[in-house]
Design a protein around this nucleic acid. Sequence first.
DNA 1: CAGTGGTCTAGACCACGCC
DNA 2: GCGTGGTCTAGACCACTGG
Lengths: 244, 244
Amino acid sequence: MNDAIQAKAFDFKPLYLQVKESLVRRMIEGSWLPGQLIPSEIDLARELGVSQGTVRKALDTMTADNLLIRKQGRGTYVAAPEESRMLFNFFRMVPDSGERVFPASHIVRRARGKATPAEADALAVEEGAEVWRIERVRTLGDSPLLVETIVLPAGRVAGFDRLTEIPNNVYRLYSDRWGITIASALERLKAVSASARDAELLGCGEGTPLLEITRVASDLEQNAVELRISRCRTDAAHYRSHLK
Amino acid sequence: MNDAIQAKAFDFKPLYLQVKESLVRRMIEGSWLPGQLIPSEIDLARELGVSQGTVRKALDTMTADNLLIRKQGRGTYVAAPEESRMLFNFFRMVPDSGERVFPASHIVRRARGKATPAEADALAVEEGAEVWRIERVRTLGDSPLLVETIVLPAGRVAGFDRLTEIPNNVYRLYSDRWGITIASALERLKAVSASARDAELLGCGEGTPLLEITRVASDLEQNAVELRISRCRTDAAHYRSHLK
DNA sequence: CAGTGGTCTAGACCACGCC
DNA sequence: GCGTGGTCTAGACCACTGG
């Protein structure tokens, strides 16, 4: 990092961003694993040949991106897809009562197939490429909350068919099994009518208004990894969004 | 700020947060108005008796909160409720096609009344307190997108009845007319069925699934200022949410 | 060219967790 | 008491804007 040359005119990139990229690369390549304690600021600064302040700025932006977790007095850890963190960051349906309950999941179907045009577009794969589809029902407390279909490119999840069980927290599965870190997701929400199948699985009337969430989740390199379409009952829960 | 005394044990507050609070107070009290150029870092540092780095950290967190806009080479400005910024931060419905279009608005009704229990709870006023209600239809391009009811505590908007016209961007109205800055909002989304009135105003069938957004917007002091319930058609548009 | 915010550095001290 | 991240300072230089 000493010898990084700052071009004069059009491609200036601050040192702390170069540091950040080099640290993110360690996560991508797997030399830094989720949950792991990373070296202290002072060690990183020495290793990279920059000041502690510059390392700090890189670590701070990574913390803001939820890639790291810093604990005063203990050190800096690579963020891990733990239940509580995932629940808070990526699962925005909450009971109207307010308390945050962990949802349970029940797999309805698991099948291999060929990507539809819409799926191929969302996942940036060829139309007709092999994909896995998982359909499951999630419940909050006793009553069914939503039914969702998760679509994964078969090429990214080798040996998927050998899994005997699919856990509730699939992002942790992606991480543990294939080293895939979900770093961000884009959700598009619409209101739709419950189909006969929705009604059956969710125990509501056919035609009941449901909240449909179409999520495309991406890894550290911004590549789409998962497409998920969830259809949610909203009679006792809602989607929460904080704006500022 | 020189003489701020740091208590030893339980109520430590970093200097840059004290600086931040003192600067936010200037906005609340109206000595710093939206759109205004504020003094340079170095001037603020001298005035407050702290280092430039501490002022910078305060300004950076305020920028992250969308309270300030910093422009290299020009200076730092108090964020203003301009169309484009509001559209980006607070209006999350976008056409499925993707381009961001400015919605138009048409007022349907404006009336004074007494707060229902639900309204009183959301706005933190007494049940039965005087409120203004505005109902309007918003269109995106040619077709109606949503119908919404805006509820305002009458006490916060003196002279509301003397307004001859209500602009599309009401947050700018709150700012210009009553010095109220909307700093954050909490939205709760559900799927509902179009009522006969919804259907009439939106030109859709009764019972069509609509996306219902219940928003409580708050000012710089975290006091609820506006309750807004929007019911949106989602046949050609969706609510966008970015998670990370 | 002067003034602003943006980056980078070096060093001091504080709050916290753990042994 | 030691090591960590968190705060604060002082000063240098860079990138950008506008007169």
